[in-house]
C-alpha cells in the first residue's frame, strides 16, 4: 500500500501554508511534527480530500485521490484537530450516523459501534448526549468514529490533545496494535506520543518538509548537540537567553539543565544521548513546545 504526496502546495489568499512537499507513506505509523502554523492540519486536510492542493497531487496506489473520489474516501479514517459533533446526539447515535456516512450496513455498524465504544472506554456513556461530554471524551469518540470503517489510511490530527496521561497511553497502545497493515499519520506537539511507535518522523517547518526519517536516523543528526549541565539557580536565565534549554530539574547541588547547542555551552557541560524531545527543540523554538 502506498500513499504518495507529489510536489503538493496549498496557497491561501496571502499565505503559502504548504510549500512543495513530497513524500511517500507505506504501512506503519508516521509521526508528523511541526510547530503551530507549520501546515500540518492543511496537509492532512488535503490527504483526506477536505482541501484541494493548489498544485501537485496526491496518489493512493498510484491513482489520483481526486479521481478515486468516494473509493478513496472509503478507505480513510480521519480525526480532525477540532472535532465536529451534534450536541443533541447520543454517542451511540452519533457513531451510527458516521457509520451510515461510511456506508456500513446497519447490523455490522451496531456491532462495530459497540466494539469501538468499548475500545475508547465510553460504553457506559453511550446513551449520553455528546454535547455533555468532557473534552477528553469528545476526543475519544472522535477516535472511535475514525476507526469505524477499519480504515487502511488513518489520519489523526493532534489526537492526544485533551486526553489525560492514562488515556494517552491507552491511545498509543491502540495505535500500535492496529498499525500493522495500515498507514497511520499522526500529528502532534507531544513528542512522547510517537517516540516509540513511529516508524518514521516527518518534520514540517513553515510549510516545508525538512526531514522524513526513522527516529534513530533523525537522532543521529543531533547526537553531539545535546548537553546536560548543573548550574547555580541564578545562572539559569543566562543560559535560557543564549541557548535552547529543554528540561530543567532541581537537584540538591543546583539546577540541572538540558541544553541543545552546536558547541559545548559550558565547561561543566556533559554530552547526553539525544531523544525526540531534543530533536523537536532543535528544530523548533522553545516557546512553541507545549
Amino acid at each position: 500500500m502506498k500513499l504518495s504526496v507529489e510536489n503538493v502546495s496549498k496557497q491561501f489568499k496571502d499565505k503559502l501554508a504548504v510549500n512543495n512537499v513530497s513524500f511517500d507513506l507505506t504501512e506503519g505509523v508516521y509521526g508528523f511534527l511541526g510547530a503551530n502554523g507549520a501546515g500540518k492540519t492543511t496537509l492532512m486536510r488535503m490527504l483526506v480530500t477536505l482541501l484541494k492542493p493548489s498544485s501537485g497531487r496526491i496518489l493512493f496506489e498510484g491513482k489520483d485521490i481526486d479521481v478515486l473520489d468516494d473509493k478513496y474516501r472509503d478507505v480513510i479514517g480521519y480525526l480532525p484537530q477540532y472535532i465536529g459533533l451534534y450536541k443533541n446526539f447520543t454517542a451511540e447515535k452519533y457513531l451510527m450516523y458516521i457509520a451510515s456516512l461510511k456506508g456500513i450496513e446497519k447490523e455490522q455498524a451496531k456491532k462495530k459501534v459497540d466494539e469501538l465504544l468499548e475500545v475508547v472506554n465510553l460504553s457506559e456513556h453511550s446513551k449520553r448526549k455528546v454535547g455533555k461530554y468532557s473534552g477528553g471524551m469528545k476526543q475519544r469518540i472522535g477516535i472511535a468514529q475514525a476507526l469505524l470503517n477499519d480504515p487502511k489510511v488513518l489520519i489523526v490530527d493532534e489526537p492526544t490533545s485533551g486526553l489525560d496521561p492514562k488515556e494517552r497511553i491507552r491511545f498509543r497502545n491502540l495505535l500500535s496494535s492496529i498499525s500493522k497493515d495500515r498507514i497511520v499519520l499522526l500529528s502532534t506537539h507531544i513528542v512522547s506520543d510517537i517516540e516509540f511507535i513511529a516508524k518514521e518522523i516527518i518534520v514540517l517547518k513553515s510549510g516545508q518538509l525538512i526531514h522524513k526519517n526513522s527516529p534513530e536516523i533523525l537522532l543521529e543528526h543531533i547526537k553531539d548537540k545535546v548537553w546536560t549541565v548543573t548550574v547555580n539557580e541564578n545562572e539559569v536565565p543566562n543560559f535560557q537567553s543564549v541557548y535552547k534549554v529543554g528540561n530543567i530539574v532541581r537537584q540538591n547541588d543546583g539546577v540541572g539543565l538540558r541544553i541543545i547547542a552546536e558547541e559545548k555551552p559550558d565547561a561543566r557541560a556533559l554530552q547526553a544521548a539525544p531523544n525526540l524531545e531534543d530533536l523537536y527543540l532543535y528544530y523548533f523554538d522553545q516557546e512553541e513546545i507545549k
Partner: peptide, 20 residues
C-alpha cells in the same frame, strides 16, 4: 454542518458528498 465542524467528517467520508 459548516457551523458545527461536522463538514470535516462528512465531506471526508465515503458517502459524504453525493449520497448525503
Amino acid at each position: 454542518e459548516t457551523g458545527t465542524g461536522m463538514n470535516q467528517i462528512i465531506l471526508s467520508s465515503t458517502h459524504g458528498r453525493k449520497k448525503v
